[in-house]
Design a protein around this nucleic acid. Structure first.
Lengths: 152, 152
DNA sequence: CTAATTCTTGACTAAAATAGTCGGGAATAG
DNA sequence: CTATTCCCGACTATTTTAGTCAAGAATTAG
């Protein structure tokens, strides 16, 4: 899990789409104007978002992008994963060296934390953000939630 | 809140310190060897960690760094904040334009999310990571926890 | 005291990621 | 037909990341 400015751009653009996309598609030019992101850069981002099945496109006049599904079914983690193509940072994997060494240990601890952050962002949808509501407040039992969020 | 590879290096190095730092300090050379991070780069990171009051140093033979306080009182968010010097990304602040525009709205939504991630990482200590334990599982009441994690 | 060790600091550099540019396409609504 | 919009690849400038180098200050061991 990595969280860079590109991820922020992507989430911002998707939020713009969720907010301004009613029945008709939203053009990248509109998003570019509102969010002050260069059109060509948006094109690159949306190419990835489309490959990630998060948006669908419509060409021609009146065309643009719309969310591929309900805003309550698109999660922040999916957006970031789509544009970030997370690189494998396993610098001890496959080499065969580093048997239970400190390197492996700390690396594993980081992986756990990274997994936790990913899990965290996997429960926040565009809809949740728009309503400024914590999705976990909807959970019926606190036990279930604790389990969801606990370390593996 | 930004989460880059530098933050990962810093957390990794601090974990190494927490694990290998008993009664005596740990030298950067040791950490460099174990974690395969260049010594000079570690020096830069630890300069910031020291300024952030997260570690204390001891010069001379047998010297090195040690945690400034207990591993249960050093949180991941503090480490990342110390090395990342988060840049302000308010591209509408102060300019006076953007009165409740879409730009401001989505920007604000991102700020909320960013704040949530920061809050999340503010509750995970080095000790928690080492014990692979979710700090929130310690909380007495689920209500209190829900409040802690809910959106502002 | 001396010498080895270790942190401290600043300037510099190579490599990678980020953000943006450009130019040409293809589809489609009107 | 034509304007609009997505689509795609190559290219470029800027910034960040990660690392290098060199000199110096503190401190401990002997």
């Amino acid at each position: 899990m990595k969280l860079t400015t590109r991820g922020r751009y992507a989430v911002t653009a998707m939020l713009d789409l969720a907010i301004n996309g009613g029945s008709r598609p939203v053009s990248l030019a509109d998003i570019s104007g509102r969010q002050e992101i260069s059109l060509s850069y948006l094109e690159q981002l949306f190419a990835k978002l489309r490959r990630g099945k998060l948006v669908v496109s419509a060409r021609g006049p009146g065309g643009g992008y719309r969310l591929a599904r309900s805003r309550t079914e698109i999660y922040v983690a999916q957006i970031i994963d789509a544009v970030d193509e997370s690189v494998d940072v396993t610098n001890c994997q496959g080499k065969g060296n580093c048997h239970q060494g400190e390197t492996c240990l700390t690396h594993h601890l980081w992986e756990d934390l990274s997994g936790q952050i990913h899990e965290f962002l996997s429960h926040i949808s565009l809809g949740d953000l728009m309503e400024k509501r914590d999705p976990r407040n909807r959970s019926v039992s606190a036990d279930g939630m604790l389990q969801t969020l606990s370390l593996r």
